[in-house]
Design a protein around this nucleic acid. Sequence first.
DNA 1: TTGAAAGCGCTAACAA
DNA 2: TTGTTAGCGCTTTCAA
Lengths: 339, 339
Amino acid sequence: VPTINDVARAAGVSASTVSYVLSGKRPISTPTRNRVEKAIAELNYRPHAGARALASQRTNVIGLMAPLRIDVNVNIIMQFVAGVVTSARAFDHDVLLLTQDETTGLDRVASGSMVDALVVMDIEAEDPRVPILAALKQPTVLIGLPKHAQGLSCVDLDFDETGRLAVGYLADQGHRTIGFIGSPPVVIERHTTYAERLLRGFNSESAERDLRTVHIPCESSQVGAQIAVDALLTAMPDVTAVVVHNEVALAHIVSHLRSRGHRTPENIAILAICPADVAEAQPIPLTAIDFPTHAIGQIAVEMVMARLDGDRPAETRLLAPKVIERGSTHAPPGAGAEV
Amino acid sequence: VPTINDVARAAGVSASTVSYVLSGKRPISTPTRNRVEKAIAELNYRPHAGARALASQRTNVIGLMAPLRIDVNVNIIMQFVAGVVTSARAFDHDVLLLTQDETTGLDRVASGSMVDALVVMDIEAEDPRVPILAALKQPTVLIGLPKHAQGLSCVDLDFDETGRLAVGYLADQGHRTIGFIGSPPVVIERHTTYAERLLRGFNSESAERDLRTVHIPCESSQVGAQIAVDALLTAMPDVTAVVVHNEVALAHIVSHLRSRGHRTPENIAILAICPADVAEAQPIPLTAIDFPTHAIGQIAVEMVMARLDGDRPAETRLLAPKVIERGSTHAPPGAGAEV
DNA sequence: TTGAAAGCGCTAACAA
DNA sequence: TTGTTAGCGCTTTCAA
């Protein structure tokens, strides 16, 4: 394996010149640069990551802690991860993958200087990782919102506003009785705050507009979907619109509603909260508030990179929700749309 | 951040002694070891990964190249990844995540000495990454089977045998007309070899037993499942058993079969090929040939580790398929089971 | 059973 | 515009 000295010798320059050609940290004359680049190409030289990290205090690696359990939302997680990885590459960084259950991993990779920065997914209200992260020298960004950010950056969809928007959108169409089929009970119990924020927004807007609503948690399975739909129709037989925030159950909810005699969009409006590709892949394309998972992953990396070389202050970014119409919400039967 | 010298000073020993306490590569007297360990704990010392890599030629990181596209089987991928990550940790290694589409990433991380070894998923018959990997100094294991392994290790379920086992199992129950609903056309076109191997095994066993069979590719969606079921029932109205190898479509296939009047297991036997948790999560638990994704991920890591410190020869390991009964296959109506 | 010292391959301050 | 050189923090040979 060739070293920087081999390259320097081949190009007839010093090692530092090669280093500076690579880093661009000082001007190099064109002929010199050409000779160096030629030598690099010919020797197929690649700097030794460890040596570079040792000398520069930079690893060009970021750590990503992702939940690899199967229990929730594999699709969503993958999209976050994909967003993080591609974005990291755009900043010339690689990604070291840590699993959620290995809390000590944070300290290991950070204290061992394996990573320049950390992105942590699936944050709970009182997440025990937050204080650990706050104590590290590496900048961190949380995907999700803990109760106390303790000086860490956060990024997420604005779920509070999403709940309000969902209700407002349907109410503006004339719906007065709205169901909300949400996350599995276990997610709510874990206090992953998005579920709480979403419900809060949903409830406050419903209250302001004086609507009748009902919230049904839903297991992420076909059976769970059926149970939830049945529960919804029992609790609110005259429901005309339903907001669904459960990507796995979504398809089953739609088809079970239909088998119970509620067709979308004629008899019942469905407004999903999910990534665009999920909404589009349904048998009936669904109007949805976009959950921009890939974008959130990207932004997380951008935030952490900005702090890395700018040392800018931490910040929390909540992305504004947006409805994308796909025709699954009409005015309720017998009511004129108000919009 | 404390260095090894800080620890050495605090413990009243030399740096090399600290190093040897950490690595266990030479005997240390108990009192010395205690003093060193105390100093490490008090200073909260963690060796600098880059420095260690530079000096030892070992990074304690393995590279994992995984497909992060959404098009196929997110669930399966996650299980592989989880298996790899947990197993890597058991060998005191971390995992650097590379995406499938970044072929140059292999060379980057390998030549840059960022990883000790590589695990590559989703291998195609003529995979362009295979020659690249074969040229690296790091050991590699492929999850999947290319046409020419070129000296690389491979691990996978024995899909050939799986196809044979599926047919044999159903035939032994008395089924003579068997449908096979498989992967999406795109997977087959990509020549991801498992689909081909599975079909080959399925066909050869069917031919030997003189059965009537039909193979229907199936898109991974609800609509795809319906189309496939309809196609199957049209092509073979008297079908009594169906083998399904498509985790995403599985639930929809079962429920569409039922809505077409074929209940499982009374009227139609279903034998899935999928991970155990998928088979169990169906509305009706499905008898299935287990796809041991987590285990394959683990074994991949074990193989690569064995080569790393043993320099043992490359090998191909094909895991024997096994049926796990869950009651979704009965003898066909009007036939006595032959087993 | 332990220590001294020579690198590992690179970066960046300092000098020219 | 380029070169010289002193580390970065660790491992491991050699010596005691």
